[in-house]
Design a binder for these strands. Sequence first.
DNA 1: GAGATCTATTTTACTAGTAAAATAGATTGT
DNA 2: ACAATCTATTTTACTAGTAAAATAGATCTC
Lengths: 164, 164
Amino acid sequence: MKVSDFVDRARLGWARSRPELDVSSIEVMARIGRIGALAAHRAGRELAPAGVTRAEFDVLCTLARGDGPMRASEVTAATMLSGASTTKNAERLVKRGLIERLPWENDGRVVLMQLTAEGEALIDQEFPHMLASDARMLSGLSPHERAQLAALLRKLALTVESMS
Amino acid sequence: MKVSDFVDRARLGWARSRPELDVSSIEVMARIGRIGALAAHRAGRELAPAGVTRAEFDVLCTLARGDGPMRASEVTAATMLSGASTTKNAERLVKRGLIERLPWENDGRVVLMQLTAEGEALIDQEFPHMLASDARMLSGLSPHERAQLAALLRKLALTVESMS
DNA sequence: GAGATCTATTTTACTAGTAAAATAGATTGT
DNA sequence: ACAATCTATTTTACTAGTAAAATAGATCTC
């Protein structure tokens, strides 16, 4: 009758096959990987009807919360993809009319990206759905637990971001 | 002088551009995505010298903690990739001599996968390094905080896994 | 002020991942 | 028993992501 998650099962496996190892760090890191992958799949499915991929939506969100046009390199840093991917995603988004690219007068190497009205509209439509979907995943936790989890993850994020 | 993580900055952006939205669920879900992506990049870099990708290493770990040979479909479920990816990863791993594939006498459709001695050796060599790397990422948290974080993530994982 | 060097983005050539079709073996209903 | 159906894996055809080279613009040094 006991309920187990993916990591409980993985720990049982390691305990049997490599009993000498202390695998306790997977309790946190493997769960983050697993939950992240499940959430990513879910986001992809939910965005499909809107005709954008997760990566494209991530670019749109980055631009939406930015203060004015952003450099391609800033978008690259925020999305954690390669510069080459930013070029490709930008091309697809321009083709769909969701963003536009403009040169920057102060530096001819730089390409600025900004949402079109249609891109803003897509965010206004879809971002609340993503927030609601995220909230549903958190529905098993009390408000206090969510706050605690957010604070612990923030602390972890600060360490991991500083290591990279 | 205040330190902020990726999500603190994202929240500031949303607060400015979409002040009417309650974006609090990104406090948990976006941090999980971000930490997961950073950890995945790190794992890829650390595995490169061993000559395996993260996806291949994930297959090897799945087999290492399994009890005997596993079906291709079980590996597919554990890695969260497509069946087609399992076929490709298995081919590369067979070519590198790290796993072998065998038919199953009870059902001719099934392909069983198991580690070779060389595959076991690679896990014995590399898995402890991955655990140590994970532990370093957690070094900013006290043992009590790690346990609390693991427990909260486990609760979240149970919800999210049941939703999928 | 002109080469040398550095930097931002794009292009090229390639690898990884996928959905859907194909294949091949098992099961079911009559 | 045998055609129809179901299931596990592989193949095919394609998309997404990347590293490294190419391009083009800026900066630095003398």
